[in-house]
Design a protein around this nucleic acid. Structure first.
Lengths: 112, 112
DNA sequence: CATGCAGTACGATTCAAGTCGTACTGATGA
DNA sequence: TCATCAGTACGACTTGAATCGTACTGCATG
């Protein structure tokens, strides 16, 4: 037996539709960049709920940013009961923009 | 004899100050991304005037975007008499964000 | 020195994005 | 069945970015 079927992903752009400007725009927000860095470093395999990130912002703000990431094609979101979990679209992004995710994961902000 | 001294670059962030969000933000504008792609592909060595790009926009708009690129640390600008020429800070960006420029140069927009 | 030219500076306008409060939805478990 | 909990939807507010017209600067060449 394989594992149980996953819920369908929420609406997202197809691989062929991914645009570099859009993806870079999504990653240019500090909060969103932090989300993606944390996902890549700490959970590249499994998807995570909004709460997992421990971001101290109102829930409506978080919804806004997670939606922006999904609509830009950076993340995939699935609904599991109450929870909406996010994961980075690693394969799709590596296929279309090779090196981008490595770079994002490797980068550490300057600490002056 | 080496070649003549270059004019001093206009104010720009130091390598250590480069921030990924900022650079990605600068590249997320379609017009600016086009500028950088053209520079990387057609003139990675020498610097170019605003006019060289052949962009059909008012001059004040171009000034705005070239300044944004410089202030984000993506380009270096030098004043040669009347002309202000721009070049990509290839070494600095490769040192800080390895792979980013390759990716930008390699990418081709979808043609639907 | 005066004209032309590359590009800037400034200010106005417009539009998109980030932020957040409040009300809502829909699955879960007592 | 009813309360709880994760997260959304909507709308208001505010800020910042893009765009562009017009006026300006300053080198360069006659």
């Amino acid at each position: 037996m394989t594992s149980a079927a996953l819920p369908e992903p929420l609406p997202e752009p197809a691989v062929a539709e991914l645009r570099l400007e859009t993806v870079l725009g999504a990653l240019s927000d500090p909060l969103r960049l932090g989300i993606i860095r944390k996902l890549l470093r700490e959970s590249p395999e499994s998807d995570r709920t909004c709460g997992w990130f421990g971001i101290d912002r109102p829930k409506s703000t978080l919804t806004h940013h997670f939606k922006a990431l999904r609509e830009a094609g950076v993340t995939r979101q699935r609904q599991y009961g109450l929870e909406r979990r996010s994961q980075v679209r690693v394969d799709d992004l590596n296929a279309r923009f090779p090196g981008l995710l490595d770079l994002v994961a490797a980068w550490t902000p300057p600490t002056p």
